[in-house]
Amino acid sequence: MREFDYRRAADVPGAVALLGAGPEARYLGGGTNLVDLMKSGVERPALLVDVRELPLDRIEETDGGGLRIGATVTNSDLAAHPEVRRRYPALAQAVLAGASGQLRNMATLGGNLLQRTRCAYFTDVTKPCNKRAPGSGCPAVAGEHRNHAILGASAHCVAVHPSDMGVALAAFDAVVHYETADGPGALPLAEFYLPVGDTPHRETALPPGALITGVTLPPAPVAAASRYRKVRERASYAFAIGSLAAALDVRDGAVHDVRLAFGAVASRPWRARTAERALLGGPATAEAFAAAADAELAAAEPLPGNGYKVTLIRNLVVAVLTELAEECRRNEEATR
């Protein structure tokens, strides 16, 4: 790890100003990803601007039943918050499915959105990687890619975004708020992550030097009946090989509202809008769920070693939506 300057920011404008003043500067949140990457040489900042103690650690209710979550809220506090658990249970579940108790106590919302891929070629500086060293090539395409992307990737990069939290945020139409020297801005999560294309090193649409200040979750009654399911190669403390955030509202046997997002299949949390459109207004049956999953996954371009993810995601969609539909049916019966 090379030597670096360290500054603790007192307020948001101060943080933005500090970062702008130094070349090769990075914001430091919980550090669970950045410090690791600095140790492996992937990140070599000259200046760290510590934003962890900025007053961005609140979770507030917004008008109409949404939430605003500050950027320095830790994963633990987010998952433990009663309103998160009540209004967006899949978000709490997603956060709890990630990392470990220790890491969740350190990691922050802002950092989670910006965490880098766990692709083993990206984290090994002795190997080529277009994301780390643009133009050097992508060894994963013809190499070890069991846990790489099946959707939205390119020949330049097939890495997946490792976040669990982000999958639930994508399902619930989160909007990311940020601050720059020129003032505040906002990006819907759907536009936050850039397409891979031939620039996999450009990961987000944030302006240079922008500091994420928080996320708003618009009101979503359907989210109250939501679930996150994560499949991984051990039962805990491992990144997903496929995950699903799902919310479903079934009325009289028909899909009234539905949200679906996939994890560990693309360079970003993958909102399955094609599947959602296929389901809306239709029957809440296993066949319909499978057909909707197939419609979304028709765009999948698996590599030789990760075709199982297509089956996995399809099966997850059917299994989780079937469970949620059954709960909707029971709730409908109970309220009649």
Binding site: A120, Y121, D124, T126, K127, G143, E144, S236, A238, F239
Partner: peptide, 21 residues
């Protein structure tokens, strides 16, 4: 990785041993 002859994911996140769960 046969192309380089070394390991891919040479850490405890890449090499899984059973966790408590």
């Amino acid at each position: 990785d046969e192309r380089w002859g070394g390991h891919v994911g040479a850490d405890l996140a890449g090499y899984h041993v059973a966790a408590n769960a």
